[in-house]
Computed example of a mutant assay.
Amino acid sequence: MTMTPATGLTDLVRASLGDPLAEIAEQHVEPLHHGSGALSTASLHRVRGTTTSGVSWSFFVKSIHAIKHSAWFAKMPEGMRADALAQFPWRADADAYLARRPLPGGLRLPRMYRLDDLGDDRLVMWLEDVRVAPTTWDLDRYRAAARLLGDLAVAWPVAGRSSVPREPLNRGLRWYCAGPVANLFLPILRNPATWRHPLVARHADPLLHADLLALTDRIGPLLEALDRLPHTLVHGDAGPMNLLVPSDGSAEFVAVDWSWPHPAAVGFDLGQLVVGRAHTGELDPADLPAVHEVIEAAYVAATAGIADPCEVSFGYVAALVLRSAWTAIPLELLDHEPTPELNDLFRKRAGLARFIVDLGRSLRLCDGC
């Protein structure tokens, strides 16, 4: 992390505290863990301290960069790199703050105090360090999140349905399916050795293997059908980890890590909401159907003015399949030590894969699609 000069940090502290005379007495920098799969995130830090009058201050500092700076870039097939450089929305999170779009009541962004441009497609965001209340993600919490995501869709319409779209609307999903899915994930899933790996073979049966690969035949038709649905701007990664519950009661949720600048079909944001805690192993596969039912119903009610229930259901499940089916099993962890904890994660993630596959197999085009 490139530290800001003390005078600049003093200005930030004064702005955050609303005290033009505040002076820094001490400061600390704490590195924070971030997932290795976050291609645009260079680092996360908490910069905190106290003033000479004993008042505490703190910032959440997020450094982002173009995909060319990611460790994963060199591992990409050479034919993918130019397209990835052009298509990957590395600065989507920063742009969400700069856009200042109105948000529905109950939802807010953290305050961004400053955006530093370091050059060479590198940015540093100095953000409010949101104090999070102790919370449980029960069905009521999921319901509230889905309702607000529906309200967000209503607030940010982009394009209505079209029987013959002039150009594909789902640019982000199309790039994702043609790039990472086709060139990275599917070759691993098609490799018989993957399914013989102890971590996979113990929890994923041959039928899951066959069903996952059979879904690949639907990629093109699903993308075309999604183009004919009502579209909105979206959060893009609206999992529970990115919907913070602030302890000060300033909102129901503080939404962080905005990641999808492209228009998407109604229902898109529900995908990450349902898989977020399943990815980490916090949500058992047995609980997925109840979460699925609750969030779909809440989102349908919120978006009644812009989409029919069947359109929401199709948009939600089709995007979930295209974005999450082939990454449900944590293939990136196959070279890790097979600890009991990792075995349990593979069990849960295989259950997530089965849940998504079953939704995908039952998916039927509605009249509006």
Rank of each mutant, 00 (worst) to 15 (best):
T7I: 12
T10G: 07
S16K: 10
A25C: 03
E26T: 11
Q27R: 15
T41C: 15
A42Q: 14
S43T: 11
S43V: 08
S53N: 15
S53A: 15
W57F: 15
K62E: 13
H69G: 01
W72S: 03
P77N: 02
G79N: 01
Y97D: 02
G105M: 07
R114W: 08
D120W: 00
M125E: 00
W126S: 01
V130S: 07
V132D: 05
L139R: 06
Y142L: 10
L149F: 00
A159M: 04
L169A: 02
L169N: 02
R171P: 02
R171T: 09
P180G: 00
L184P: 06
R190Y: 05
R202L: 08
L208Q: 11
P221S: 11
A225T: 06
L226Q: 03
L226G: 00
L229I: 12
G239Q: 15
N242W: 14
L243G: 00
V254L: 06
D257M: 06
P263N: 09
A265S: 03
R277W: 12
A278Q: 02
L283E: 14
L283G: 10
D287S: 14
L288P: 08
V300Q: 04
P309C: 14
C310M: 12
A318H: 06
L320S: 00
A325T: 09
A325Q: 09
A328D: 00
P338V: 10
P340T: 13
A350L: 10
A353K: 10
C366S: 12
D367T: 14
